[in-house]
Design a protein around this nucleic acid. Structure first.
Lengths: 149, 149
DNA sequence: GCAGTTTCAATGACGTGTCAATGACATGTA
DNA sequence: TACATGTCATTGACACGTCATTGAAACTGC
């Protein structure tokens, strides 16, 4: 296209950053699948559920916490339930709602997965970033992610 | 899970960065779909094809250039062909291969899309990043993306 | 209490990406 | 030349995410 609407610096930085945006989650996701048979979304659901003492969370609240749509979580929870990682219970507080509950199997899979995942995040990312860079990246990420949608 | 295997700083930076990794492409992709009816992959295919003077590129070469699998590009090209954005021609150099060719319609859609997309990238990202940050982000991105898979 | 509105989870259609398998063709080597 | 191996695009099965819709239940104001 050769649109001159980004400066050369901006263009190159944006290109490089887009490569990272694609490559990093792909690599960490592949590690996770290979090591534990989980997808990144699986891991996110399991680890968020495990933060609650009773391993139970209302679907709508879990979706809000993870910034997922309820539809997405409903689909994903159905697939994870079919694999025995979580199960669903009626919400005693709200008959429209449901609770998602981390099964013992799901918790076991998460416990097995977590250390591998940490190694993956370190070796794919953290090891290659200085403390200064990490601090800058955190500020930058928060600033941009917090912009309105 | 409360795994203590990332320091608090690392944990927070990784969380913040993951939010960005999800939110930024989603926002820019939604802008693109709203403004031009294109997905981000559509835009990437169209703009890469348009870089060639004759708007033609062998599928395998285009896939390599974009770092896509040939399977992915084959699927995507079929959908884009059905919408009239590109068409396919036999490769005169290699009877196994095929050339993808940007149609006039596809080129028109790209020309209409490009300025909106640039505004989107600016307002969602570049405007909120200082020159120093951008330089650091570029170095960091290149360093990590260039790691082996 | 009741009607209108909002919120909940579920669902189906669709576009998307990955993986493994396939058949067509190219290439390298005896 | 003939055969083995590699590379090409395609295909089908599956997982995934979005959007629009649905029906049930909760809230709201009267």
């Amino acid at each position: 296209m050769e649109t001159a609407w980004l400066s050369a610096d901006e263009e190159q930085a944006w290109r490089a950053f887009r490569r990272l945006l694609v490559a990093l989650p792909a690599r960490i996701g592949r590690d996770l699948a290979r090591d534990s048979g989980l997808s990144a979304p699986d891991y996110e659901v399991l680890s968020t559920l495990s933060e609650k003492p009773d391993r139970r969370w209302a679907l709508r609240e879990l979706a809000a916490k993870m910034e997922w749509s309820r539809s997405r979580l409903s689909h994903h929870a159905a697939r994870m339930q079919a694999r025995g990682l979580i199960d669903k219970e009626p919400d005693p507080q709200d008959a429209r709602g449901c609770l998602l509950h981390l099964t013992d199997d799901g918790f076991g899979v998460l416990e097995q997965a977590a250390p591998h995942h940490v190694v993956s995040v370190r070796s794919r990312f953290l090891e290659h970033v200085s403390a200064d860079e990490l601090a800058m990246l955190r500020k930058l990420s928060t600033r941009i992610a917090d912009l309105p949608d």
